[in-house]
Design a protein around this nucleic acid. Sequence first.
DNA 1: AAAGTAACAGAATGTTCTGTCTACTTTCAA
DNA 2: TTGAAAGTAGACAGAACATTCTGTTACTTT
Lengths: 229, 229
Amino acid sequence: MAADGTRTARGTARDRILDTALTLFYAHGVRAVGVDRIIEESGVAKATFYKHFPAKDKLALAYVEKIDDVCSGQLHGAAEAAGPDPAAQLVGVFDALTGMCHAEGFRGCAFVNAAAEAEPGSPVHALAVRHKRDVRAWMRRLAERAGAADPDQLARTLTLLMDGVLAGGALAPDPLAAQAAKTAARLLVQASVAAAAEAGAPTEAAPAVASEAGAEAAADAAARLVRTR
Amino acid sequence: MAADGTRTARGTARDRILDTALTLFYAHGVRAVGVDRIIEESGVAKATFYKHFPAKDKLALAYVEKIDDVCSGQLHGAAEAAGPDPAAQLVGVFDALTGMCHAEGFRGCAFVNAAAEAEPGSPVHALAVRHKRDVRAWMRRLAERAGAADPDQLARTLTLLMDGVLAGGALAPDPLAAQAAKTAARLLVQASVAAAAEAGAPTEAAPAVASEAGAEAAADAAARLVRTR
DNA sequence: AAAGTAACAGAATGTTCTGTCTACTTTCAA
DNA sequence: TTGAAAGTAGACAGAACATTCTGTTACTTT
């Protein structure tokens, strides 16, 4: 075995450390897991550990970076799977949440959890902030392309729903939460798109009592909301 | 001073400990704050500390209990301030979130943060779960009294928004988040109530294309959603 | 006046954790 | 073949942390 030199059981020593940290940090929290345990469970020598990660903080940062990659990938994947229509993609994103919530050992949003343990100015916290900002910016672009009346507002609201599913999911393990969020998202997207479809001046128009098109679409969506699933 | 015997600067020794813990635990996390620091900052003797809280875990539990009281009080207060109409109360709850987000040192949902550091079976975690469940049950009752088409679904969706504001607020300090959530909540409540107002059979009716009343209300709300603020 | 209670001050203990250091082994490439 | 690179095993120092223990002060109740 280990025909490729520095690799043992699975992957590089660095990969094993990071994989182990991913599991343990997410399951128990960054502070609750000592380096000794990571070293033992990844089957690596202590010197090797500190060669790759000069301090525990660096490993924590690498952990959040990895989560960033994985999470963004899942969101983008779910959006693409919903087809080419941006409005459908905005709704499709919520399928990724369903997957996350049903994953074995789901324990809420890794960014929120990690940030809860990190000091507000720290690299880990900053990275978590950036991740959330990037997701919202991405959804804002989707909302623009979908022709939403106020892309900023829509993106904000949808990311609130997403955060709610992930964060709240750690406490109230409600399998219907993601479903409810998706249904609400569909309503919000349709209402925003429909309302924009007619109001010529999108910003600060008159009292603007929405006319037929918007009303019908919103009502249609509302009816769907009502019928739960 | 200290005319009442066992009290020193402010309140009982126990109160001072709990107050200090409230501040420090929320600001830095439960694990990050040592008992020594709490003892020092609350100006209490070590023996006194361990007399009131036999272990740090007990203090952590008391901390979450206190947060439970405070938070529930704020939510109920905001609902009452919105007047007697249950639908208005459901929306008014979101005013409490605005207050929380703008409070000095806001760092997200204390329950989510505490749960992130606690093991899933632990008392602290269980209490956080119960809190979220209670809030949702309370909102479900409000939704029932408001005549929502599906109170369960509506309560679920609204609590998702709330969790999103609180949890996400720790990362992306967005002052408009609570506002956006409230706007979306108003839309969702109106849509649900309006849709129920006409469908004789509330559950599994026909395709039920919503008629005037629901359409108008939903559209009105949609228009408001569109105009951001 | 005596006893009881609640608080104070701070030393001492044992565990846990991070990070360093020494010494030996394996692997690949020059 | 030799030597750099990467790894293994584990002892060790030093800090932090939770918890216990000893002894003192002050006020209240009997």
